[in-house]
């Protein structure tokens, strides 16, 4: 079997005019906008109350998540496949209401396999996968006992196709929108909880949702 790996230039697609977003993307982006607005309001409030915070506590925390991720079809119907995915990130908590961090991971967006698929070119075994390594700037805010996240960034997305005894791997960068809601139970400097996330990718016009076990650790406090 031939295996061909194609390394693409990291062309960044920022042409909004030709980007055709579906309703799912619209909803996703609207959520990001609302969360961003909420964060901004609280951040402004925090700025105005700055003098009242007498003992600011600065924290840098890291977290790792593992769980399942599913791609939503354009119609909003959940597709059958759900894949084990991982994410991790770091958060700077400067003592205000708004925290900032970065988020990455390894997401299996889509995976499918068909044995003995009939085509115009004969029968073939077909395997396809789409994976993504996001690099997202994340804004976080604690709302009561919940953690709200919203972010923007890019994902290095890789497609792998195997059919007709040929494997083709291609990669490119895609714009990524991110929103999440989590709960974490504190235990000394650790935290354990659950996080539900949604990712939206430009050019794919699809949204992925994930439920992940969330483990966090406060690396630095001062």
């Amino acid at each position: 079997m031939n295996i061909i790996r194609i390394n693409k230039s990291t062309k960044f697609y920022m042409n909004f005019r030709i980007n055709q977003s579906p309703k799912t993307n619209f909803k996703m982006k609207s959520i990001v906008v609302l969360l961003s607005a909420l964060f901004s309001c609280h951040w402004m409030q925090a700025q105005s109350n700055r003098g009242e915070i007498t003992n600011p506590l600065y924290t840098i925390s890291i977290h790792g998540d593992v769980g399942f991720l599913k791609m939503l079809a354009q119609s909003g119907v959940l597709k059958k496949q759900s894949n084990l995915s991982y994410s991790f990130g770091a958060l700077w908590e400067p003592g205000h209401l708004l925290n900032i961090g970065i988020e990455s991971g390894f997401l299996i967006l889509e995976k499918r396999s068909v044995e003995k698929m009939n085509t115009d070119f004969g029968t073939t075994n077909f395997k396809a996968s789409l994976t993504s390594i996001p690099a997202i700037v994340v804004f976080n805010m604690k709302l009561h006992k919940l953690n709200l996240y919203g972010g923007l960034g890019a994902s290095y997305t890789t497609s792998s196709i195997e059919a007709f005894d040929l494997k083709t791997i291609t990669s490119r960068w895609l714009y990524t929108y991110y929103a999440a809601l989590g709960y974490s139970y504190p235990f000394h400097r650790f935290g354990i909880g659950l996080k539900g996330s949604i990712y939206s990718f430009s050019k794919l016009n699809k949204t992925d949702v994930s439920i992940m076990l969330d483990l966090s650790f406060d690396v630095l406090n001062w």
Binding site: M117, L130, A163
Partner: peptide, 17 residues
């Protein structure tokens, strides 16, 4: 969604099927 490369990355059979 699983094909994100350029046309010249894929064979004709892959694209058609």
């Amino acid at each position: 969604t699983y094909m994100i490369g350029q046309i010249r990355d894929y064979t004709f059979a892959q694209l058609r099927a």
